[in-house]
């Protein structure tokens, strides 16, 4: 089914549902990244399909607390308890653990300190999506297969499109930039990045990311819109697609500037138009 969303609000959750998703995501912070993305998608799908609620208390009454919800998800996926370092230590006999810990402290402490800042996992992940098109003729069709969601965006030359995502990261991470990576002949030319806290209504527009933006300490994440222009249709045959399923995130963590590739919760695919809707001639056309 075609779901055209030209110029309309980004398909998203209500205030209480978004809070629920964010709090659930925080309780998944210790889960391995692949499972975290999978479980985050389940929470978002569930909250997106429920009828909107009027109050937070109503949502909790109907669905349980985010903690209990995540516990149920963990149980369904066989992820019981914490997956942090302490959990791993608990599985080792105490005497062995003490010896290993002492050896690590003596032998590896200095080296670890030197490299910890460069290798620490900042906990980056994506947990929402959506497309906003300013041009009413840009169509957006959502389809899915094998648990993956794809947004098919119909090309209109020169139209401006915003690709939405939400990023989560550990406390202390500062967001510097987000881009779609190397795409020398893409149908989508990135022109800017907008970012704000999850509390900001995306319909009101997000501010430009023109200075480092710290992830909130409560793990709620940041709302991101990658702005861009549809262009270069002459480089693609009619109906051909060019997709993006990850973003490159540049950030500062523990005093070091780093980049990390983060898989998106859904793929954005731009579909090239027929010859008569591409204003520039195609080779051989």
């Amino acid at each position: 089914m075609t779901g055209a969303l030209p110029g309309g609000p980004m398909v998203g959750l209500g205030e209480h549902e978004e809070r629920y998703v964010a709090e659930a995501a925080r309780h998944l912070a210790d889960v391995p990244k692949a499972a975290r993305v999978e479980l985050g998608a389940i929470v978002a799908a569930n909250l997106g399909e429920r009828p909107p609620v009027a109050t937070w208390d109503q949502l909790v009454a109907e669905l349980g607390t985010p903690t209990s919800y995540v516990d149920a998800l963990r149980a369904e996926h066989g992820l019981r308890g914490s997956y942090g370092p302490l959990h791993q230590l608990r599985r080792v006999p105490l005497r062995v653990a003490l010896v290993v810990v002492a050896m690590l402290v003596v032998v590896g402490a200095v080296g670890w300190r030197r490299h910890a800042d460069a290798t620490a996992d900042p906990g980056l992940g994506s947990f929402c999506g959506g497309v906003r098109a300013d041009d009413p003729f840009v169509t957006v069709e959502q389809r899915s297969a094998a648990g993956a969601t794809e947004e098919l965006i119909g090309y209109v030359d020169g139209a401006t499109v915003g690709l939405g995502t939400c990023l989560q990261a550990d406390e202390g991470v500062e967001l510097l930039d987000v881009d779609l990576g190397d795409a020398p002949s893409s149908l989508f030319e990135q022109t800017g990045v907008r970012a704000a806290s999850m509390a900001v209504d995306p319909d009101a527009g997000l501010p430009e990311l023109d200075a480092p933006l710290a992830f909130p300490p409560d793990g709620e994440g940041l709302r991101i819109t990658i702005k861009g222009r549809l262009t270069d249709c002459e480089r693609y045959g009619a109906g051909d697609g060019n997709g993006f399923d990850r973003v490159t995130v540049r950030f500062r963590y523990r005093g070091r500037e780093r980049t990390e590739t983060v898989p998106l919760i859904e793929t954005y695919t731009f579909v090239s138009p027929p010859d008569d809707e591409c204003p520039r001639p195609r080779p051989g056309g």
Partner: peptide, 30 residues
């Protein structure tokens, strides 16, 4: 609960026992 239902549906889809398609509902949500 709903968490278990949604997780179950994803698991069943991964095993090829159910198939899914995403559509937009009347309220504009997927």
């Amino acid at each position: 609960g709903e968490a278990a239902v949604y997780a179950c549906l994803r698991r069943l889809e991964g095993r090829g026992l159910v198939a899914s398609s995403a559509e937009l509902a009347d309220n504009g949500r997927a």
